[in-house]
């Protein structure tokens, strides 16, 4: 077990309206088995002992699945590895390092406090069409609808998105295309999603634009930083879905 001393440069911002700034903290005795968030827990205990306000950040499951944690670490969403911040361990750093910790930066994700941002725009995009319209109780027997394993697996790959927003944070235009396309593709691939396919693509894209996310220029930074490795192929599929819908639909 190695212990290390680190310098942390952390974004502090008391609330959405206040101006934020980077502040410097020294922290010592960090052991390399700790997770990155446990390192921040240690910092927060230290700060409280000194009667200073602890650093606010979102986190919950600490297992890489809830999508709560969200830090830009040394310029990269979720830090140096392609995983969530809660799954990053201090063995990825070394004694004497200076670590920069900032919130997701995007117009559509305003800062709430310190490192915590408001990602409700993602939910509103889902409200606009990320579902199959089926009331409870009206389903047929599950095995009456065989779905080839290849398609099921592909749909599953799209469905693994955890909604963390790293794709937006990674994109220089703060585009949400990877997030939106994952849902559109999942349902477009499955037979259950066919009836509302066109309407869904149109509504979700319209809501995405209304929320102020930027345009996609296909650099692939989103997919490269995605902790769940959601593929760029989803974006291509969504573009086809959207164009197809626009050309033929009577809606919107």
């Amino acid at each position: 077990m190695n212990t290390m001393n680190l310098t942390l440069k952390i974004w502090r911002q008391p609330n959405a309206k206040a101006k934020g700034e980077m502040k410097s903290y020294k922290i010592s005795g960090i052991n390399d088995h700790m997770s990155f968030l446990e390192m921040l827990d240690v910092l927060n205990e230290d700060l409280q002992k000194k009667n200073e306000d602890p650093v606010v950040f979102d986190h919950d499951c600490r297992e890489g699945i809830c999508g709560s944690c969200s830090l830009v670490i040394n310029g990269r969403p979720h830090g140096p590895q392609q995983t969530t911040t809660c799954q990053l361990h201090m063995r990825s750093f070394k004694d004497g390092d200076t670590i920069y910790i900032e919130p997701w930066r995007a117009k559509a994700f305003p800062v709430i406090k310190d490192l915590m941002v408001d990602r409700s725009a993602f939910d509103r995009i889902q409200h606009s069409g990320g579902y199959v319209s089926v009331n409870t109780g009206s389903a047929q027997d599950a095995n009456n609808l065989p779905i080839g394993k290849e398609i099921a697996d592909e749909a599953f790959n799209s469905a693994t998105c955890i909604g963390c927003g790293a794709c937006v944070a990674a994109c220089k235009n703060a585009s949400a295309m990877l997030f939106v396309s994952a849902k559109i593709s999942q349902l477009a691939m499955l037979p259950q999603g066919q009836a509302e396919r066109k309407k869904r693509a149109e509504s979700m894209v319209a809501q995405m634009d209304a929320e102020g996310f930027g345009a996609c220029t296909n650099t692939g930074a989103c997919s490269a930083e995605c902790p769940k490795e959601i593929s760029m192929a989803n974006i291509a599929m969504m573009n086809r879905e959207y164009l197809g819908a626009k050309l033929t639909s009577e809606a919107v």
Partner: peptide, 11 residues
């Protein structure tokens, strides 16, 4: 119900 919603269970 879950399959009808598009939940991708293993197949």
């Amino acid at each position: 119900q879950c399959v009808a919603q598009g939940v991708p269970f293993a197949r």
